[in-house]
């Protein structure tokens, strides 16, 4: 399993690149929620409005910090995959919750996104910190 850490300059470059990708996703979320609000007759949902926070805080800021901190080790592919998938799941869950809120309904499945997403983010972060501790 690729839980191992690589601390090459190339790896840190990838962190910045990933941060930029998440920044683009955050911008997309802002634009999407803005356009959706234009056609929702004044009905709004905080889940839709603030869904950009997941990729911005969990993606851009986290990867920037990893890239900028000189002593930080670069997480392996598996950890990145799990963590990124968690952020994507949380963002999708927030989007869906926003759509359902604005429509005035709910779904028994909406909590699945939040639980699975949070779990993946936790696992990804735990693996990363465990590896940090192990290699420090």
């Amino acid at each position: 399993m690729t839980l191992s850490i690589s601390d090459t300059k190339n790896g840190k470059g990838k962190m910045f690149k990933t941060a930029l990708v998440f920044l683009a996703v955050s911008l997309f979320c802002v634009i999407f929620s803005f356009i959706y609000a234009r056609y929702s007759h004044g009905v709004h949902s905080d889940y839709m409005t603030y869904m950009f926070a997941y990729p911005l805080i969990g993606g851009t800021i986290v990867y920037l910090l990893i890239g900028l901190l000189s002593k930080a080790r670069i997480p392996g592919r598996f950890v990145i995959n799990v963590y990124n998938s968690g952020i994507a799941t949380l963002t999708m869950g927030s989007l869906l919750r926003g759509i359902l809120d604005i429509a005035g309904t709910s779904s028994r499945y909406q909590s699945v996104f939040m639980i699975v997403g949070a779990l993946m983010v936790f696992v990804g972060a735990a693996c990363y910190f465990a590896a940090q501790f192990k290699t420090s």
């Binding site: 998938s85 999708m92 989007l95 359902l100 909406q110």
Partner: peptide
């Protein structure tokens, strides 16, 4: 993820 989201929307 997209498949499950579509299912949730259809179900709702």
């Amino acid at each position: 993820l997209a498949g499950f989201a579509v299912f949730v929307l259809l179900d709702t």
